[in-house]
Every structure is written in structure tokens, then in C-alpha cells.
Design a protein around this nucleic acid. Structure first.
Lengths: 302, 302
DNA sequence: GATTGTATATTGTTGCATAAAAGAACAATC
DNA sequence: GATTGTTCTTTTATGCAACAATATACAATC
């Protein structure tokens, strides 16, 4: 049922997991910044943007080079080799962190009630092949996302919330309260450049990219859209609350039906919303957001 | 500036910190359950209520006995020696966990900007006298409360949120959205016994207990009140969101001015709210909640 | 003058041995 | 029959040393 215990070798066939992860961060950043093939990847700038020092950035750049996504010459630094579209990145950087896989497995096991509500760390260690330290990080992360909590003695308890079938409906109801309210807040404002960026992205999705995206990407894109908008209220409590809800929604996102046509309608609504926001018709925007979040069908994204 | 390094002796003059903490949990529970002097403290019941086994409960009971708050006879278990009023408990159980003290110190240092926004664990270890393990627990807790986050490399970053002066206003604005909305949710309902319990408690406070309470207690009581009510929506996302806001508000709660008269008005409003809720006049209750949260003066509690 | 390359200092992680805490089972007592 | 007392097992915490990752400072290069 499980791999032998001591078989946890790192997957160092060429680059370490860590380096590939860093490479991924760099590419994601490059895409967000709208960089093109040929643009320079300046170490210090990347380091500042990612809240890291140059040392790990360097590792990432080397990994990118190894993957053919960047080219480097001595004393001249690195340069993007390809446009950083989502399609180009994934296949080249295949390494998925193991703790990430376990995270997914646990999430699935919880949703399917294959795990009891109360578990000890020792049980989890036996069940999933992890080191103690990895498990603890994972548990802390899950705790931060709000679907597990330490018991006072030994062990942890999964939130009933997650596995309950109503969770999706409740999440939606909550969002239907905070998102329009955020838009209706007195100081609400969205910088023009944010609107532009969001519109470009949604437009691209609408114009066909959606066919090539995985469920996970579609979901992620939707979350980003809504989070950027709620940020406009300038009140971190709104943003934080939405992020938390989204981190839980992500758990059952993969279950949702991939109704591409419904998604297109959904994205069109995003575009309309942006129009209203740009025109500063906030009350109308808030109202549209309410309706948007009350639509029955396309539960997966939003 | 700091205590010598190896001076971290446990405060074992008689009972351990841990035992006193457990004793505190038992007393808190006893008060919540409305127990009186003379009532039996059945181990298994306490264990179930606190999600622990009998072993730690036992320690707590012994500590209670040592503190004169419980009496035990062989084979007959323990019995409450005094009514578990808040006044009786505090002086007898003086041990405050050290990590709790450090928590408070850090909170103060952050609020007063005596700490830089980015800190390494090593810096914190040097600054506060803690073991590595204690510090990590503390950081995880603070992260769960949402006012610090790991940086991708070494170190942690405090949320700008907390030290910013607008935080209080923003917290209030957020609550003014979610709390009335929760009451207005379709399925909202509050069990009669909850209403009764809340009313008793608020009435006691109103009838004079308020004069004897510390700022911390008043604040805590207010949070409990609002959290119990929002729970009535049956939607855990509302409750969770409120709890998070409250855990941050607690940080600057102690600063607020102790305007007892204002607080009495505030508590009277709580009582009126309970009347409306009992009568199931939810729209009116929601409206009152909105006004309640928009009152300018008594920011400390609510 | 900015950026990269390299060496060094600092910081945090991991695994392990040991100690402490909690849980569970069962006997003793009321 | 329920509850406490006792014992034994399991689980987790802690401190430490070796190790890995990150940060920093400064020289080399464009």
C-alpha cells in the first residue's frame, strides 16, 4: 500500500525540486509583468519582486536555462528565451513538489471521508510517506487555510465544514455578501492599470485560451480576478476573508463540471463588470456582482 | 537588556505551568456551564468537554486543589470549592504561560513599531528569551491570527495592517458588513437556550459586574457575544471571518479608553438586540446590528 | 554605474536520542 | 453501574549537532 520507508530520494536527475520551483516563480512573475522573449532577467529585480536574495534567484535562472526557457551568457546575465505563456512553462518544469502531491491526496481523502475527523500525526506519518518535518509544515499550512485545527492534546481535527456538502453553497453565500459590499464601500477605487490588466487577461481567456486551460488554471484565474477587485476596497479584511474562502473552495474545485460554454458566459460577465468599474458606476457594479455570485450553474469557477 | 541566557527555569515552586493552565481551562468551563460551589467535577465529562483524555484533566484538578478552588477525597473525585466567578480564579492561578507574555510583548512592540516589518527568527530569539520551539509555536499562532507571514526565504513579515492606524476603522467597516448580513441570511436562527444564556451574561455585566472587569475581560465578553450571534447563520464562513477580525482587534483592544458609561449603553444595546432576535424580528435585528456597529464612541469593545 | 560572479556569514532545517505528555485499558472503589 | 486510581502504551516535544539554504559583502566585468 505504501512505498518502502527509506525510499524518499530527492528527484535530482538534473535540477533539484527547489530550483524548479524557483524557476516557476520567476516565469509566473515574468508573465504577470508582461515580459516577452528576449527581455533581460535582472537578478536583483527578480529578487526584490519575489522577496528573496539573489542566491536562490540564481538557482532558478539556471533551472530555467536547463529547461530551455532562458538563455544565459557569462557576465551578461539571463534573457527570456520564450514568451512566458502558461503553455510553455508547465511541460518544461515538470517537478511537482512532493508535499504538494500529499496535500492533494489528503484533501481528496478528507473530501471523500476516507480519513476520520480526528487524526494523530503518527497516523498520518504511517499513511502518507513523509518526514515529520514535512508533515508539520503541511499541517500548519492546512491549518492556516482553515480546514484543520490542533486538538489541545495529541492530534488534529478536520473541520466539518470541508467535507460537508453545503460548504460550496455557504461559501457562495458568504461571497455574495462581502464582494458586493466591498465594491459599495465609500473609498472603493480600482487603478486604471489594474482594470486594464484584468481586462486583457479575461479577454484572452474569452477569446479561446479557455479551451486550453485546465480546471485548476481556470479556477485560479477566477480567484485572482475577484481578489483583485475586492482589493479595491482598500480594506485588508475583505481581501483576507475572500482569500480564505477561496483556499477552501479550491479543495472541491476539481470536482466541478467543466462546462466551457457556461464559463464563457461567466467570463463575459467579468468583462461587463470591468466596464462598470472603469466607469465608476459602483452601485451598479455591486449589483452585478451580486447577480454574478447568485448564478446557479457554473459553481466551479466564479 | 535581557535576562541571562540559561536562566529559563520553570516556575515549579509547586505546580507546573501546564497544570495551572489546565486548571484554568477547567474553571472557565465550569463557569460557562454555570456550575456552583459543591458541584462534582467528573473527570470523564471534563475530558470530553475539553477534547482531552483524563490524564491531563487529573493534573488540572490537582492544581485546582492546590489553589484551593477544588476539594478532593480519595475515590470520590473532586468538587468545586468556590463559585467559579472570574474574580476567584485569577489570583489563585497566577501562572501565566511565558509564551503568552512574550506574545503580548511582541504585539506591543509591533503596534509601537519597535520591531521592523521584516524579522528573522534568529533576531527574535535574541530579542526575546525563548527556546526555538516556543518561538516557532508562537509564530505559527500569530500567522494563524493573520498578522505575520513567512517570507519565501528566511524571515517573517508583519502585516502592515496591524500597526496601521486605520486598522480599527477597517475592522469595524468589515464587521458592519458581515454581522448584519449574517442575521439577514435565510436560515438564520438562534436556539432559545443560547439567547437565554447570552441574556443572562449581558444582564450580569449590565448590573454592575462591568465595574469589576478588566478591559481584557470586557473585550472578550463582547467578542463572545457577537460570535455566538453570527453563529446563528449556520454558515461557518461568517463565524470564521469574524473570529479572525476579532483576534486582530484584540491586539489594540487594551489601548482603548475605559469609558464605563459608554459601555453600559453598549451592553443595553446588546440586550435590545437579544429581544429582537428572540422575537425573530430578523430584519429589525440586522438593522440594529448595523447601527450598533456604526456607533462612533466605544470602539474598544463592541 | 549597474550588473554579475564569488566568497563568507547568517539563518533555518533535519534527524536523532531522550524526555514528557497524553491516551487507553483495566482494576479498585464507591 | 458509574467513577476513580493505576499501569502501560503511544504519541509528541525538546535540545543538539550536522547540514542545507539564504543573505550579504565585495570584487570582477560589462
Amino acid at each position: 500500500m505504501r512505498a518502502t520507508d527509506s525510499s524518499r530520494q530527492r528527484s535530482d536527475k538534473n535540477g533539484s525540486e527547489r530550483a524548479e520551483h524557483l524557476a516557476g516563480l520567476i516565469m509566473t512573475l515574468a508573465r504577470r509583468e508582461g515580459m516577452k522573449a528576449g527581455d533581460r532577467l535582472v537578478e536583483q529585480r527578480l529578487a526584490d519582486a519575489l522577496d528573496l536574495s539573489r542566491a536562490p534567484i540564481r538557482l532558478g535562472l539556471k533551472a530555467l536555462e536547463a529547461a530551455g526557457l532562458a538563455r544565459g551568457e557569462p557576465h551578461r546575465g539571463f534573457v527570456l528565451a520564450k514568451n512566458p505563456t502558461s503553455g510553455a512553462v508547465q511541460p518544461a518544469l515538470a517537478a511537482v513538489r512532493r508535499s504538494e502531491q500529499v496535500y492533494t491526496t489528503i484533501a481528496g481523502d478528507v473530501l471523500a471521508s476516507r480519513l476520520p475527523p480526528d487524526v494523530t500525526e503518527a497516523e498520518l506519518l504511517r499513511r502518507y510517506d513523509l518526514s515529520r518535518a514535512e508533515l508539520q509544515r503541511l499541517l500548519d499550512r492546512i491549518a492556516a487555510e482553515g480546514w484543520i485545527a490542533r486538538l489541545p492534546g495529541y492530534g488534529w481535527r478536520f473541520a466539518k465544514t470541508v467535507s460537508s456538502p453545503e460548504a460550496q453553497v455557504q461559501a457562495k453565500a458568504f461571497r455574495a455578501v462581502i464582494e458586493p459590499a466591498a465594491i459599495a464601500q465609500p473609498g472603493f477605487a480600482l487603478p486604471q492599470e489594474v482594470i486594464t490588466r484584468l481586462r486583457e487577461r479575461q479577454q484572452r481567456v474569452f477569446d479561446g485560451e479557455i479551451e486550453k486551460m485546465t480546471i485548476g488554471e481556470i479556477f485560479h484565474s477566477g480567484c485572482e480576478f475577484h481578489e483583485e477587485i475586492i482589493r479595491g476596497a482598500g480594506n485588508p479584511f475583505f481581501l483576507e476573508a475572500l482569500k480564505r474562502v477561496n483556499s477552501i473552495r479550491r479543495l472541491f474545485a476539481y470536482r466541478s463540471f467543466a462546462d466551457r460554454e457556461g464559463m464563457r458566459r461567466h467570463v463575459r460577465e467579468h468583462l461587463r463588470l470591468l466596464d462598470l468599474l472603469e466607469a465608476r458606476h459602483y452601485p451598479e457594479a455591486a449589483e452585478l456582482m451580486t447577480r454574478h455570485l447568485q448564478r446557479p450553474l457554473v459553481e466551479g469557477l466564479s
